[in-house]
Design a protein around this nucleic acid. Sequence first.
DNA 1: TCTCTTGCTGACTGATGGGTCATTAAGTAT
DNA 2: ATACTTAATGACCCATCAGTCAGCAAGAGA
Lengths: 205, 205
Amino acid sequence: MSEPRFRRRKEDRPQEITEAALAAFAEKGYAATRVEEVAKRAGVSKGLLYLYFKTKEEMFKAVVRGLVIPRIDALAASIDTSGLSAEEFLRGPFVDFVKTLPGSPIAVVIRLMIAEGPKHPDLVQFYWDNVVSRGLSAITELLERGVRAGEFRRTTVNEMPHLLVMPAVFSVIFRLLFEKQALDTDRLIDTQVDLLLAHMKGGNS
Amino acid sequence: MSEPRFRRRKEDRPQEITEAALAAFAEKGYAATRVEEVAKRAGVSKGLLYLYFKTKEEMFKAVVRGLVIPRIDALAASIDTSGLSAEEFLRGPFVDFVKTLPGSPIAVVIRLMIAEGPKHPDLVQFYWDNVVSRGLSAITELLERGVRAGEFRRTTVNEMPHLLVMPAVFSVIFRLLFEKQALDTDRLIDTQVDLLLAHMKGGNS
DNA sequence: TCTCTTGCTGACTGATGGGTCATTAAGTAT
DNA sequence: ATACTTAATGACCCATCAGTCAGCAAGAGA
């Protein structure tokens, strides 16, 4: 006769909740987001959230974990599989990936990390181990490959892969805060990569 | 006989409160900081805060305003007064200033802006007008001076002064989150400035 | 010394929101 | 059908905290 008032979908709940939480956090930030708001977005009662996550904080951590790992895995994998030269990879898949960041869920995670990081040391540690550290190593390895192939000189950049990631982080933050004052983040990223490649390929230092 | 229980010091209160608030925000972030905690640090009762600031939010805004403006003014002024060439200014006062950022109160403000910005659009606007916009213009003007003097070619960098500020923002965030995994932020800044100067002085694009 | 002004206090309140739990109803097994 | 398990509800509890206000006391003025 009538629709049941709810369905039991134990399997799907965690991800649904996680997604709802991300959306809410993106709009209001962690502290300003009410648990009930997340519940509403997930189309579920507040009490249910506490069956899947012990506290609001646990929920927050689940969001970060669930979103970031897959993406990084994908990029790391593509470094190995693609038969591209180091320069081709940087100009191609790497730049593409970086350009998508400012508009992706990862941008939200980055903001959350900055805002809440100091209050969640274990989460920062997790993020460092699984994202930052691995990302930097992957880039270092890629540059090393370029040096071995005779594409690049060995320069300071080999010890500072940060220089390649920098524009991504900067763009994420800039877009987040000053959306209106459109900075052409794609161009910023391209320019920085051009600069670095020019420096690594020829020149004098 | 006995010390008075308090003194009336209308003049000094605002700054004392503002400083206490900054210290508290630096440790806990805005949302997690209790108004009473700020009062305690300022050695004052909670009620007093509300005589000088209508709300916690107003207090927050006062912190940002009071801390950042003076610094930016100082830097902007020194661009004009110093008789240095563009390159000398960049390698000298500019780099010095940027290097102090990650450890300065401004770093705290930057973090607060990222964390709370989306909830305070008017504050973001204020920050844009008085800090970011003015800072970028100053740099643009400096580069332009360099071009006119024949020091620099005109390149993409003239339209993207962001490239010079980027390492500062990146360093602030990096140090804030991953203090332990010491990134040599001074070196990062130097390297980026070297790269840009090399590009603007010679080369091919 | 006795006002009078006002900077300042601290106990109070009202609302908010994280977290709980007794109860209900969806699905499953017999 | 009937009994049983457990996903899901939502009304409730209560600690927390931003903001208030009646009264107090520091210092100025006479």
